[in-house]
Each structure stands twice: as C-alpha cells, then as structure tokens.
C-alpha cells in the first residue's frame, strides 16, 4: 500500500473540519473514518471535509465517505464538502453522496 495522504482536523465551533491532501483511497478513506469516529463518540454531528488538495478519489475511498454520511444521518447530523475538484464533484453526484451530504464554500455556511 502506497501512502499519499495527509489529514488535519480541528473543531470550529460545533463543526469538525478536516482537510485532506492526496489520494482518497482505502488508506485515505480509513484515516478519515478513524478520525471521524474519535469525534463522533464525543457527540460531534457536523463534519466538513475540505478536499481542495485531493484531486483523485477511488470507489473504496467513497465507500468510507458513505459510511460516515450514514452514521451522521443516524445521529441527525450531516457531512459537508468544500473546495471540490469538478471531476470529484461529478463522481460524488453520480454516486449519490449529495442526496444526504451538502456542499459549502466555508465552515461559516454551516448552521
């Protein structure tokens, strides 16, 4: 497994903000899910993933994101994406992610 992924996270008010860099594949998706689980257990129900620096994603990475969406929806929360590459945005749309997740320009848009 080749690692080409970095993740940072911080709480901005009641929103967990993650910034990804690199390939969102099995390893990248797993890192996002693990980081999310840490905060989910603390009651966080809003997650913003800024993927400006991720230009490539595969279906395994997407499956992790769908799981996060399901878990958040189960708790009445929501996942948001920002700075989507047009190609990734199209893929997410086709995969149905935006039926339950949102798109924002910044964390301030999340209420």
């Amino acid at each position: 497994m080749v690692l080409d992924f970095e993740l940072t996270s911080e709480m901005v008010n009641d929103v967990l903000v993650m910034k990804t860099e690199g390939y969102i594949n099995n390893a990248g998706g797993e890192q996002i899910a693990k980081e999310f689980e840490k905060y989910l257990n603390k009651g966080v129900s809003k997650l913003l993933i800024d993927i400006e620096k991720s230009k490539v994603v595969n279906s395994i990475g997407i499956s992790f994101l769908i799981e996060i969406i399901e878990k958040l929806n189960g708790k009445g929360g929501k996942l948001y994406f920002s700075n989507l590459d047009p190609s990734i945005e199209k893929t997410f749309t086709i995969m149905g992610l935006f039926q339950f997740a949102g798109k924002v320009d910044s964390v301030e848009e999340i209420k």
């Binding site: 893929t91 086709i94 995969m95």
Partner: peptide, 17 residues
Amino acid sequence: LIFDLNNKVAQLYNLID
C-alpha cells in the same frame, strides 16, 4: 448493488470526461 451500479455509471462518465 446500488453502490456498484452508481460506480459503473461514474466510471463511464469519468472515462468519457
């Protein structure tokens, strides 16, 4: 099944793009 179906559609779109 829904994921696989959506993924196939996404693959075709990606290929065309």
